[in-house]
């Protein structure tokens, strides 16, 4: 069934979309039927510009999304240790 459950968080940074780089200030995260990925369900993240007019989106399998979370945390840990 289509799910309406969406997690939202504020983010600080930039993302590159079809019109180039934009500032992004929020991210919506949900697990539902994707629009494009050949998956029954996908972990989707929409990075949004301040006025929500531009969206940079990804649709990932559950397994690869979990692995990505682990790699992000790992990169942060080693990177922050390196850079102080």
């Amino acid at each position: 069934m289509c799910s309406y459950i969406t997690e939202t968080t504020a983010v600080v940074g930039s993302a590159k979309g079809p019109e180039g780089w934009v500032n992004v200030t929020s991210a919506n995260v949900y697990f539902d039927h994707p629009y494009h990925a050949a998956l029954d369900h996908a972990l989707s993240i929409d990075f949004l510009s301040p006025d929500s007019s531009q969206r940079v989106a990804v649709e990932l399998s559950a397994e690869s999304a979990r692995e990505l979370v682990a790699r992000i945390l790992s990169a942060l840990a080693t990177g922050e240790a390196e850079h102080g």
């Binding site: 309406y4 939202t8 919506n28 929500s52 969206r55 989106a57």
Partner: peptide, 10 residues
């Protein structure tokens, strides 16, 4: 359509 669906979902 996909961007509008994202807005509707949000």
């Amino acid at each position: 359509p996909d961007d509008l669906a994202a807005k509707a979902r949000a």
